[in-house]
Amino acid sequence: MIERTPILNTITHVVLFVGFLASITPFVVVAIAASHDLVAVNLVPMPMLPGGHFWENLHTAWTTADLGPKLVNSFIFAGGVAAGKVLISAITAFAIVFFRFPGRQAIFWAIFITLMLPLEVRIVPTYAVAADVFEPYRTILDVTGLNGLIESIAGVRLDLKFGLLNSYAGLILPLVATATGTFLYRQFFLTIPDELVEAAKMDGAGPIRFFVDVLLPLSRNNVAALATIMFLWAWNQYLWPLLVTTEPSHATAVTELKQLIPNVGGIPEWNIAMAGTLIVMTPTLVVVVAMQRWFVRGLISTEK
């Protein structure tokens, strides 16, 4: 600004530096604790310089919590949610913005409402659906009497049963079923000039051609932003994976952290716990640092 403000500048620097320390200290504490042996990590006050057991702690945490396969699971899960969101949101927004069909407004509102209720608050029934995913359709068939009809015509009784517990589909699909990305795309598609649509139509492009050759290349920024946000969001999910994966083979890295909490009265292996924490937080931290631009952009545009 215009004026000279030496006192204010000093305050600014001090406050920001304290804020910087507060943001960074937990990371530093985790890293330092992960580098000490059992005795050193339990010293009071805690040693503030790194020790020499970093790699062996990482190794112990890796094997104790079986983090290798869990990280693979996390990557499949988070990548699947990001890809699913990007794809489903794009085609839905395409349908809502570029077509006129009966019930379009109703669909729009039906999707909009899903923004309001996060998975956590409707967790119990969603879990029941995941455990038996065709239940809604079976009930509809039963209640409407369609099942009896099918039975009398085809002579077989439809008995759809299919559980999604302990599967990637069960992890991924319920998290894709919200509206966040759809709105990001909708807002963007609305800014595409009508002339572009007209021109494409003039050149004989059908809707699918227009979508693939015009819209998708134009939405590259949105795809990057949405994919970053959704990857982080899914990676950091806890309650849903905890419920859906009852078998360790499908557990994610984040839910596996629970194995590393030192028991009360047990050996306080904080060094191992912190090493595990470090391993689990690193991928998201790398994504945030590498994709900072898209991350910030995605945050701001998906929420508004």
Binding site: T92, A95, F99, F101, P125, T126, A177, T178, V197, G206
Partner: peptide, 27 residues
């Protein structure tokens, strides 16, 4: 400007509708 083939539009919206019905409205 919009496309005439409205059934393609509905087809594009169907996956999302099935998902939110199964995992949102039903629960």
């Amino acid at each position: 400007a919009s496309f005439r083939h409205w059934w393609i539009g509905i087809a594009f919206a169907v996956p999302q509708i099935v998902l939110i019905f199964t995992f949102f409205y039903w629960p």
